[in-house]
């Protein structure tokens, strides 16, 4: 007999496995124990309560997915959204290396141009106002030094 699993069930199964590994291996190895502890003082109590609840809930979702299958349940993660996520990671790297101001100017211009090859002049004006406003608000008024980047520190 071939059993077809719903996407919900597959995700629930993966989550259950992650929870199981966390309970058995990650929690014991990643929590420091300082001598013998009263049960209520143990730092293990709550992480274990949380993961137990997580395991039970994902098991219930897995079983429910077997009995109540939905007909249409595609998860639509489009290539465009993956590209946007890559742009976000690119922005993160830009700020890491060349700092917030230069990173933002370059990223915003490239990203806006990627989204719509339109009015470059408008983009430059908007970016200039945005960066200047951030400089005034954060550096001058709130006295927060925004990241300068690895290359400029």
């Amino acid at each position: 007999m071939r059993m077809k699993l719903s996407i919900d069930s597959i995700i629930a199964f993966v989550l259950f496995l992650i929870g199981f590994i966390t309970y058995l291996f990650i929690i014991p190895s990643q929590i420091q124990v300082l001598g013998f502890l009263h049960q209520g003082l143990s730092p293990f109590v709550f992480p274990r309560v949380a993961v137990s609840g997580f395991l039970i809930s994902s098991l219930v979702l897995f079983i429910r997915g077997i009995f109540y299958k939905k007909e249409n349940e595609p998860i639509e993660i489009t290539s465009k959204s993956l590209v946007v996520i890559l742009w976000i990671i690119f922005y993160l790297l830009m700020i890491t290396f060349i700092g917030y101001y230069f990173g933002t100017i370059i990223f915003l211009f490239l990203f806006m141009t990627y989204l719509d090859k339109g009015n470059y002049f408008k983009y430059i004006i908007v970016i200039a106002i945005f960066v200047f406003a951030n400089y005034i608000l954060f550096e001058k008024l709130l006295r927060i030094i925004l990241p300068r980047g690895i290359f400029f520190e």
Binding site: I27, I31, Q32, L34, P43, V49, A50, L61, R64
Partner: peptide, 28 residues
């Protein structure tokens, strides 16, 4: 069950850091 998974995941992530009573490191 999806809501509960999300809630317990939130509970678990919030336990990361110094233990509030004993001061030992958890899941860092």
């Amino acid at each position: 069950s999806k809501g509960l998974i999300a809630a317990f995941f939130g509970f678990f992530l919030a336990t990361i850091g110094m233990d509030p009573i004993m001061g030992s490191r958890r899941l860092t």
